[in-house]
Amino acid sequence: MTWKILSSLAAGLLCGFFLRVPEGEIVGLAPDLALAALVFAVGFSLGEDEQLWAKVKALPKALLAVPFLIAAGSILGAVAVGPLCSVPPAEAALVGAGFGWYSLSGVLVSQSCGAALGTLTLLANIFRETLAILFTAVVAKRFGNAVAVAPGGATAMDVTLPIVAASTDPQTALLAFYSGTVLSILVPIVIPFLAKLVH
């Protein structure tokens, strides 16, 4: 899937670079429909997973708050470094609310706030996934197992799950899956909400 994501993005980039399509001609009904179809598919795969509920019930109650702390921490952290790179708070918050899911957050932000901010969201969340791959083991060792779920954000349910599992214990792997799932659901809810603050 990763090469499909990168090659479709690269193909679009090259076509755009050589054909110079005016912004107005790209936006139409198609992106909206495709976005709805994508989000529908995300919801569908989550709803279909019957074991999901049994898995969540097996977790200690206190850990259920973890994804919401990660969501708040990601947004606040992005807003906090905003002044260092002259990104206004509302825009930084949007970038942070990708929670590492670069493909969905990139397209969501570009649809509602334009390609420039969409590009920043895409890149920042690609880097977040990269940082998570590099530092999850270090975070687990230094800050404890539950904290190792934080760097990956939404990717803790797929891309970074094996890394969390390898550097912690089975219960934390379960927490990673749960946390990544909740954050994935939050991306298409929080981004449109924050996008209203930018306008």
């Binding site: 479709s8 679009g12 980039l13 976005l35 994508l38 969905l104 570009s110």
Partner: peptide, 20 residues
């Protein structure tokens, strides 16, 4: 269908990035 939609969307995102 979800993957196809994602590919279409990323292509259009790339298109608007490259055109700008």
């Amino acid at each position: 269908m979800g993957s196809l939609a994602l590919i279409v969307l990323l292509f259009t995102l790339g298109l608007s990035m490259g055109s700008d």
